[in-house]
Simulated assay, not measured.
Amino acid sequence: MHSIASYFKPDASGADPKQASFIPSLKLNDGHDIPMLAYGLGTKASKTKTTKSDDIINPTVAAIKAGYFHLDGAESYGNEEELGAAIKKSGVARERLFVTTKTSCREGVTIEEAFSASLAKLKLDYVDLYLIHSPFWAKSPQDLQRAWAEMEAIKESGRAKSIGVSNYLQEHLETTLQTARVPPAVNQIEYHPYLQHGDLVDFCRKNEIAVEAYAPLTAVTKATGGPVEPIYQVLARKYGVSEGEIALRWCLDQGIIAITTSSNELRLQTYMRNIPAFKLTPKEVDDIAKAGQGKHFRGFWGAQFSDDDRR
């Protein structure tokens, strides 16, 4: 086992967390802490006409009780009411939780209106992190800048402790930073060995914007059979963990926050137990990254990109 005795809190610079007996938190550029492993109520847990609320609430309660105090939701998932109900049902004190939701920037709806509606559905007085879900709705750079000014007003009100973005490329971040009084604290992106986004992660680090990975298990789930698979298998045997745990640890060991959407209670408990118990070496992290360059796979927002666009 690659063990490092000392422990310090990583930050948005990309510093990797040292090995500890718990999931570490990362220090954001505004001074707030964010747990580096999150439970996501993403597309798998989205509310549809046939979805029973308990099928969303109960797995979320189980995740919270397993120690997932970082909960990632969004307006577009249609399950903010269920997330709020799960928080209440869990019995865990609000101040122990880190709650994220996102705005879709729907036409004709101000971000303030969307945010107020989200808080009402969540039945919360504040969220820990509020994100613009994507930049692709914007028709001009000025649209992105106006939206960010609305986000800054929400942060100033105290109802969102931190604000950030999701699915932003470097060009969108540059546009936002041109007029921002408060820089984004987070950029949440699809991130795994087969989608490393070129220079985007380095750009975020240079600007102290924390990177948060959704779909980090893609090479184990949706894109199996690629060049990373044999490396995952070897490392899983070496550390006595699953390939999924290798995939999550790969993110953490780059100073990247990781989101899992598993609804399997036993798997969630195992992640929380096993992931703090080992750490990849720098060479193993690099080997996975280099192997991942041999395949390209994008699971989300594909309509916005050409097939060979790796940004």
Score class of each variant (00 low, 15 high):
residue 2 H to I: 11
residue 8 F to E: 15
residue 8 F to R: 13
residue 11 D to Y: 06
residue 11 D to R: 00
residue 12 A to F: 10
residue 13 S to K: 05
residue 14 G to D: 00
residue 17 P to K: 00
residue 17 P to I: 01
residue 20 A to W: 07
residue 21 S to M: 11
residue 22 F to Q: 11
residue 25 S to R: 09
residue 29 N to A: 12
residue 32 H to K: 13
residue 33 D to M: 14
residue 36 M to Q: 07
residue 36 M to H: 09
residue 43 T to W: 08
residue 45 A to D: 10
residue 45 A to Q: 13
residue 51 T to C: 01
residue 53 S to Q: 10
residue 56 I to F: 02
residue 59 P to W: 00
residue 60 T to W: 05
residue 60 T to M: 09
residue 61 V to H: 05
residue 61 V to Y: 02
residue 63 A to N: 07
residue 69 F to Y: 15
residue 69 F to R: 14
residue 76 S to V: 15
residue 77 Y to A: 13
residue 77 Y to L: 09
residue 78 G to E: 01
residue 80 E to W: 04
residue 82 E to F: 12
residue 83 L to Q: 09
residue 83 L to D: 03
residue 86 A to H: 05
residue 86 A to V: 06
residue 90 S to P: 00
residue 90 S to R: 01
residue 90 S to K: 03
residue 91 G to W: 02
residue 92 V to M: 02
residue 95 E to S: 14
residue 104 S to W: 12
residue 105 C to P: 02
residue 105 C to A: 14
residue 107 E to F: 12
residue 117 A to T: 11
residue 117 A to W: 01
residue 119 L to E: 06
residue 130 Y to L: 04
residue 132 I to R: 00
residue 133 H to R: 05
residue 134 S to A: 12
residue 136 F to D: 02
residue 139 K to V: 09
residue 139 K to A: 13
residue 146 R to T: 12
residue 149 A to T: 14
residue 150 E to L: 05
residue 151 M to L: 12
residue 152 E to T: 06
residue 166 S to D: 01
residue 167 N to L: 02
residue 168 Y to N: 01
residue 170 Q to C: 12
residue 170 Q to D: 06
residue 173 L to D: 07
residue 174 E to P: 06
residue 175 T to L: 05
residue 177 L to G: 02
residue 184 P to M: 09
residue 185 A to C: 10
residue 187 N to E: 09
residue 195 L to Q: 04
residue 198 G to R: 11
residue 199 D to P: 14
residue 199 D to V: 13
residue 200 L to K: 05
residue 201 V to K: 01
residue 202 D to W: 04
residue 203 F to S: 03
residue 204 C to D: 06
residue 209 I to K: 05
residue 212 E to M: 15
residue 218 T to L: 08
residue 218 T to P: 08
residue 221 T to W: 15
residue 226 G to C: 03
residue 228 V to R: 06
residue 231 I to L: 09
residue 235 L to P: 04
residue 237 R to C: 06
residue 238 K to E: 09
residue 240 G to N: 02
residue 244 G to Y: 09
residue 245 E to F: 01
residue 250 W to M: 04
residue 254 Q to A: 00
residue 264 N to K: 09
residue 264 N to L: 00
residue 270 T to M: 11
residue 270 T to F: 07
residue 274 N to Y: 03
residue 279 K to S: 15
residue 280 L to D: 02
residue 283 K to S: 14
residue 287 D to S: 04
residue 288 I to E: 03
residue 292 G to F: 08
residue 295 K to V: 12
residue 296 H to L: 15
residue 298 R to I: 08
residue 299 G to N: 10
residue 305 F to I: 03
residue 306 S to N: 15
residue 309 D to Y: 10
residue 310 R to M: 12
